[in-house]
Measured scan of single mutants.
Amino acid sequence: SASLEDVKTAVLGLLVILQTKLYTLPASHATRVYEMLVSHIQLHYKHSYTLPIASSIRLQAFDFLLLLRADSLHRLGLPNKDGVVRFSPYCVCDYMEPERGSEKKTSGPLSPPTGPPGPAPAGPAVRLGSVPYSLLFRVLLQCLKQESDWKVLKLVLGRLPESLRYKVLIFTSPCSVDQLCSALCSMLSGPKTLERLRGAPEGF
């Protein structure tokens, strides 16, 4: 439990870093931090981490990651405290083949985003970082199938509809809506759902 406290501190630090690096160059920093966060949550489900502190780590990670939004130009952003989304000039939600690297070039400044813009690109060529939603999407499927803490599952179920409104997140990387529907149906009809959940409301 003591070591998990250190892990929790590290994860919180990564969330803060991602919130900053999403809007700064090099964009590969945001890509790497995002991948680290998603990989860490995957390990929770792989090794069945069920301690309360592990659940709190997942809760905080999902609470942040499910706020990711994308505009029509595929640029990622996060809402501010007033709910207004600021889109990044440097990070996009497109999935890119590994051989192309985590970044790609664009020939010049991008068109203005639909929300308040981030800082304008400084040079004639900007390297865009790929932060594909499919990585998070796979972890969300694991959550629906394996999550043991009701608070975490409730958060994910509550945030998913709003995330799905931003269709560009889903359609720019390999996210299977069929698998999502299947996971939701299995969660509702499967007898093991109630068996594994802690803290579920009576009558769920």
Rank of each mutant, 00 (worst) to 15 (best):
S1K: 04
S1W: 05
S3L: 08
E5N: 07
D6G: 03
V7K: 01
V7W: 01
A10R: 00
L12G: 14
L15I: 15
V16N: 15
L18P: 01
K21V: 02
K21E: 01
K21Y: 00
V33G: 02
V33N: 00
V33P: 04
V33R: 00
L37S: 02
V38L: 12
S39C: 11
S39F: 08
H40F: 00
L43C: 15
K46G: 07
T50S: 12
L51K: 01
P52S: 07
I53F: 05
S55C: 09
S55M: 07
S55H: 07
I57Q: 00
L67H: 15
L68S: 04
R69Y: 01
A70P: 09
H74Y: 04
H74R: 06
P79S: 08
P79D: 05
G83R: 07
G83I: 02
V84R: 12
S88I: 02
Y90I: 09
E97Y: 11
E99M: 12
S102V: 13
S102P: 14
K105L: 14
L110R: 09
L110F: 12
P113T: 11
T114A: 15
G115K: 09
P116I: 14
P117F: 10
G118S: 12
A125R: 15
A125T: 12
R127I: 10
L128A: 14
L128H: 13
G129M: 06
S130D: 04
S134Q: 05
L136G: 06
F137W: 09
R138Q: 12
Q142V: 08
Q142F: 08
L144K: 00
L144E: 00
K145R: 09
Q146E: 14
S148D: 13
D149T: 04
W150Y: 07
K151T: 15
K154P: 01
L155Y: 06
G158T: 13
L160W: 01
E162P: 02
L164R: 00
R165K: 12
Y166I: 06
Y166D: 08
V168A: 07
L169Y: 03
L169Q: 07
I170Q: 04
D178P: 07
Q179P: 04
S182Q: 11
S186R: 08
L188E: 01
G190T: 15
T193Q: 08
T193F: 11
R196P: 03
L197C: 05
R198A: 13
G199N: 12
A200E: 07
E202I: 10
G203M: 06
